[in-house]
Simulated scan of single mutants.
Amino acid sequence: MISVSEAKKILQDNLISGKTILVDLDKASGLVLSEDIFSPIDIPFFNNSAMDGYAICWKEGINRRELRSQSKSKAGDLQELVLGENEAIRIFTGAPVPSGADTIIPQEWVKIEERQLIFDSDKFRKGANFRGKGAQNKAGDLIAKKGSSISPGMIGLLASVGINQISVYAAPTVGIILTGDELEEAGNPLGFGKVYDANGPVMKSYLQNLGVKEIQIGKAVDEPEKLQQKINEYLDKYDVLILSGGISVGDYDYVKEGLRQAGVHELFYKVKQKPGKPLFVGQKENQWIFALPGNPASTLTCFNQYVKPCIEAWMGKKEVWNPSGAYPLADNFEKTTGLTFFLKAKLENGKVIILPSQESFNLISYGAANCIAEVGEEVERLEAGTNVNIYNW
């Protein structure tokens, strides 16, 4: 059995990078850029006005201009106006600035008397409210770096320079095998000896939040031959295989042997942690294989700590192993030494509250939890106010 830090080090040393694909910009949110992006154009593409007002050529101390009658520049105009000497032209926000103009006087700061534009020149300076061509970026400038997560803001930036397709790291395809004759789907009557499946829905939801689109959930009964058939089938189809249950040492736990027969290389089996000690992680060529304990809290904890960062790294994300932060405990906490504890917790008002109902079968506290708190294996007691690492969902 290895420590949590040893397990994570092994995974970091064996990370798999996904392939790159070209996607439409409107389908790229949450993915990661696989190459640098350079702007194909200047932005702004032309000199334009930041305000509704009047375009002038600035001259120190001169606060009057002859207003050219019937000349206006509005957004979308295709014909460029030319400003005459000592003239002013009506202009609107986003409109092209007439040739010869270099300053915009906002409309609320002017008076017009007999076609004369009058303003207080002391309140302005040359270039006021003037957006010059290329002020944001020049053609050829680096505007988005490889490895950056694609946010709604980045999508807006890329769209503004005319980019409609980008190269990203593809999300893996994921197959989930739920083991156990006792599992029943929600919505069906629950017979004696049966339990409703929580692991399938929770892992599917988690994967969707990570940006994984192709997810298949299947079931395998507690028979070695049928389980082996399902493992082989899913290894032929998916980049990532996740199994839930059947990985301990009970009489009906056939998963580990099934993975061995399928040619999966074991990276480690069993971690000094609670919950989720009987965790198996392996690889086959460029595939990840995770066999998680079947108790729901164990499944979700192992997913958060091991599956999630490996998938995020596959998709090109960085610093995937780092905790979300360190915050002070709200209350004292005690445990036995020898195991790292991952505890359902709630970060509230800047403090970490360790929730009740920490048993591996118990999901009550998951309804209130917004993070997992980590307490190291050699720790026996923590005083209130001691900082602990947390991991957000």
Score class of each variant (00 low, 15 high):
residue 4 V to I: 14
residue 11 L to R: 02
residue 12 Q to A: 14
residue 14 N to Y: 05
residue 18 G to K: 03
residue 26 D to E: 15
residue 33 L to F: 07
residue 38 F to H: 14
residue 43 I to H: 10
residue 50 A to Q: 12
residue 50 A to K: 13
residue 51 M to H: 15
residue 56 I to G: 11
residue 63 N to M: 05
residue 63 N to T: 05
residue 69 S to F: 09
residue 74 K to S: 13
residue 75 A to H: 12
residue 77 D to K: 10
residue 77 D to W: 06
residue 86 N to T: 00
residue 93 T to L: 10
residue 99 S to Y: 14
residue 105 I to L: 08
residue 112 I to Y: 02
residue 133 K to H: 02
residue 137 N to Q: 13
residue 143 I to N: 09
residue 146 K to M: 12
residue 147 G to P: 05
residue 150 I to H: 05
residue 150 I to W: 07
residue 150 I to D: 07
residue 154 M to P: 07
residue 156 G to S: 14
residue 163 I to K: 01
residue 175 G to D: 13
residue 180 G to V: 07
residue 182 E to F: 09
residue 183 L to W: 02
residue 183 L to N: 03
residue 183 L to T: 06
residue 184 E to K: 14
residue 184 E to R: 15
residue 185 E to T: 08
residue 187 G to W: 10
residue 190 L to P: 10
residue 191 G to Y: 11
residue 192 F to L: 11
residue 202 V to I: 15
residue 206 Y to A: 15
residue 207 L to N: 04
residue 209 N to C: 07
residue 211 G to K: 00
residue 213 K to N: 11
residue 214 E to N: 13
residue 216 Q to G: 01
residue 224 P to E: 03
residue 227 L to H: 02
residue 228 Q to V: 04
residue 228 Q to W: 04
residue 229 Q to M: 14
residue 230 K to W: 03
residue 237 K to F: 07
residue 241 L to N: 05
residue 243 L to K: 03
residue 245 G to T: 08
residue 246 G to H: 08
residue 256 K to C: 03
residue 261 Q to S: 13
residue 262 A to L: 09
residue 268 F to H: 08
residue 269 Y to P: 10
residue 272 K to S: 10
residue 276 G to Q: 02
residue 277 K to W: 01
residue 280 F to W: 09
residue 281 V to I: 15
residue 282 G to A: 06
residue 290 F to Y: 07
residue 291 A to E: 03
residue 300 L to C: 06
residue 304 N to D: 08
residue 306 Y to N: 03
residue 310 C to A: 12
residue 310 C to T: 14
residue 319 E to W: 02
residue 324 S to G: 10
residue 328 P to T: 06
residue 332 N to H: 14
residue 338 G to Q: 00
residue 338 G to H: 00
residue 339 L to M: 09
residue 340 T to L: 00
residue 344 K to Y: 09
residue 345 A to H: 03
residue 347 L to Q: 06
residue 356 P to D: 10
residue 363 L to N: 01
residue 365 S to D: 12
residue 366 Y to V: 04
residue 373 A to Y: 06
residue 377 E to A: 12
residue 377 E to F: 04
residue 378 E to I: 00
residue 381 R to H: 12
residue 382 L to S: 02
residue 389 N to Q: 11
residue 390 I to T: 09
